[in-house]
């Protein structure tokens, strides 16, 4: 693992892994969505609206997965001080935020026909909205540290503290009565018929590969930006010396 903390080795790995993840993710996502939207039969109670499942659930998992990635990278940065870990955390924030927003939007659109309401303040919906706000705060904080200078440990600590929300989101429908359904997929057990479950798992895999590809692409962009700035700074010093 420490081998890949070397930026040069990371860049040579990322240069072929990024397009591989993006292309395979796009293919799987497009296939799973076509399967879910066109081929899957309607649900016994919800009818056609069940098709939102194939966007809503993968987005929810990646919204939570994105912050988990931020938290793990933040720990790695705080303990081992690898700059690449801080870059990884920053790169995961915006895609994680985008998937959280997609999850909330599709959930709201689904809630209207299924429950009879766009929004309620139950445990699951509220904690997921809090996650969106945490992402917004993290992105703003990381940008401010980058622009105005400041310890990169500040967003890392925020990423670690914000992770407390992840188990709360996961357990919210078990701890508290909520309008949102309890978990359909628990360890070793699924209450989702295979006709829905298989395209859902393909969609989760496709979304995840896409997420990984976007994070790697953003990491490469952030590294290129840092190298560019370092070069400019060096040139400026050389100009002063000359």
């Amino acid at each position: 693992m420490h081998g890949f903390a070397n930026p040069r080795r990371f860049l040579s790995l990322a240069s072929w892994l990024t397009p591989a993840l993006l292309v395979s993710g796009l293919v799987l996502t497009a296939g799973a969505l076509a399967w879910g939207l066109l081929a899957v039969p309607p649900d016994r109670l919800m009818g056609e609206t069940v098709r939102i499942l194939f966007i809503h659930v993968p987005s929810a998992w990646l919204g939570m997965g994105g912050w988990t990635a931020i938290a793990v990278s933040s720990i790695a940065f705080l303990v081992w001080k690898h700059p690449l870990a801080a870059t990884a955390a920053r790169a995961a924030a915006v895609p994680g935020m985008a998937f959280t927003a997609i999850c909330l939007l599709t959930g709201s659109i689904w809630g209207r026909p299924a429950w009879g309401t766009w929004w309620v303040w139950d445990g699951r919906l509220t904690s997921m909205l809090v996650l969106l706000f945490l992402y917004a705060g993290y992105v703003a904080l990381a940008q401010a540290v980058e622009r105005d200078g400041g310890s990169p440990r500040i967003p890392a600590i925020f990423g670690l503290v914000g992770a407390v929300n992840i188990p709360i989101i996961n357990r919210s429908v078990v701890w508290w009565n909520s309008l949102h359904q309890p978990p359909s997929i628990t360890i070793g057990k699924s209450a989702i018929d295979p006709e829905f479950l298989i395209p859902l798992l393909v969609a989760v895999l496709g979304f995840s590969l896409l997420f990984g590809g976007v994070v790697l692409a953003r990491m490469r962009a952030l590294i290129a930006e840092m190298q560019h700035e370092a070069r400019l700074r060096r040139k400026a010093w050389e100009a002063i010396d000359a």
Binding site: A114, G116, P182, A191
Partner: peptide, 20 residues
């Protein structure tokens, strides 16, 4: 004054309802 439907965690295709 208002009713909200609560969906449970089961997802079953319509045509397989009887088999279930």
């Amino acid at each position: 004054s208002n009713l909200l439907a609560k969906h449970d965690e089961n997802y079953v295709p319509r045509e397989m309802q009887d088999m279930h």
